[in-house]
């Protein structure tokens, strides 16, 4: 059944997971549909009540009360989706704002470095209750329209959209930064099996050549006392622990903080890859393997200055 998964892919990652068979079989199944209640426009109770009236079964996540999953394929055909009261979003995509919620509630000036299509931007704005300012930057001009659409639909008012290569961004000092970096997207295979057909290791190398300068620049834009989350939706250690290790080597004042989400299973970082041993601090970063929470794959690092 998992024959469309490249052998080299299996070779790389089956050695890293606790249950390789379960890992591979999970990759062959679509992720459950999920959405987030947009607190700028609705309350969780309102949404529960409305979906109950519709007879659409939804399940609230214990680790984040705004997150729901549902078997029903017609969530997008509800009035609540039309009005932006709910936002269809992958569960793992909700994690970066969740692990900086406390700081976001206080923040005045926030950067979303690679913002399009805006799922996490609009989630951060909801956490901030439209206070402060978010700079939602994206290099990909073609994706700005989707970002703008989602900002409008969710009633997000505290956002400025910019279209600049982050590496040349002016030297502001942000209270909080999200760098959800462009990546080889291996962890999205469950929603797009095509990723398997184009997968190759050259892509991984290509991505981490971009990610390394991005993480340094993003860190330079962080105000002392601020928090930055670096995340990807890929499994490759080169794009995850390898990039964070690069930050630690090049910015001695970068500190990592341990991540925990009560009720959501996070896994240990990879401490060594292809003969390269990463900084011992790397154990504070976290991985999400798809078979643990029935989600896509993800990586998270919480950096302070």
């Amino acid at each position: 059944m998992d024959s469309i998964i490249p052998e080299k892919f299996k070779e790389r990652y089956c050695q890293l997971v606790d249950d390789p068979d379960k890992f591979l079989s999970t990759l062959m199944q679509y992720t459950p549909r999920s959405f987030r209640v947009n607190r700028l426009k609705a309350t969780v109770d309102e949404i529960k009540e409305r979906f109950d009236e519709y007879g659409i079964a939804i399940k609230q996540m214990s680790w984040y009360g705004d997150a729901f999953v549902s078997e029903n394929p017609e969530i997008g055909a509800t009035l609540e989706h039309f009005l932006g009261m709910i936002y269809i979003q992958e569960i793992v995509s909700m994690l970066p704002p969740v692990i900086m919620q406390k700081e976001l509630k206080q923040a005045k000036f926030v950067l979303d470095g690679c913002a399009a299509p805006g799922s996490k931007t609009t989630q951060m704005a909801a956490i901030m209750q439209n206070n402060g300012t978010i700079i939602a930057n994206d290099l990909a001009y073609g994706r700005i329209r989707a970002l703008k659409f989602n900002i409008e639909k969710t009633g997000t008012l505290n956002t400025i959209i910019t279209n600049r290569d982050l590496r040349t961004f002016p030297n502001y000092q942000f209270d909080a930064i999200l760098l959800d970096a462009p990546c080889s997207a291996e962890g999205t295979m469950r929603k797009n099996m095509e990723v398997f057909s184009t997968w190759n290791e050259r892509e991984i190398q290509k991505q981490c050549r971009v990610q390394k300068p991005l993480i340094l620049k993003a860190f330079d834009l962080l105000a002392p006392g601020g928090v930055m989350v670096y995340s990807t939706c890929t499994f490759a250690p080169e794009e995850n622990e390898g990039v964070v290790d690069w930050l630690l080597k090049n910015r001695p004042n970068a500190k990592l903080e341990k991540i925990a989400i009560d009720g959501f299973k996070l896994s240990s970082a990879i401490e060594e890859w292809n003969g390269e041993k990463f900084d011992s601090e790397i154990t504070k970063t976290a991985r999400v393997w798809p078979h643990h929470n029935d989600t896509g794959g993800f990586f998270l690092a919480r950096v302070t200055k």
Binding site: K108, F109, N130, N131, G132, T133, I134, I135, N137, I144, K148, I151, E152, G155, T156, L157, N158, T159, I160, I161, T162, N163, R164, F169, P170, Y172
Partner: peptide, 30 residues
Amino acid sequence: NFGLYLGSKGKIYLGPKQLIKEPKIVTLGI
């Protein structure tokens, strides 16, 4: 709690109070 801005063709935007000078703003708020 927000700033009001005038775009092209009489378009009025409601956005954050704090703006930036650089880089160029593509759009803001709603």
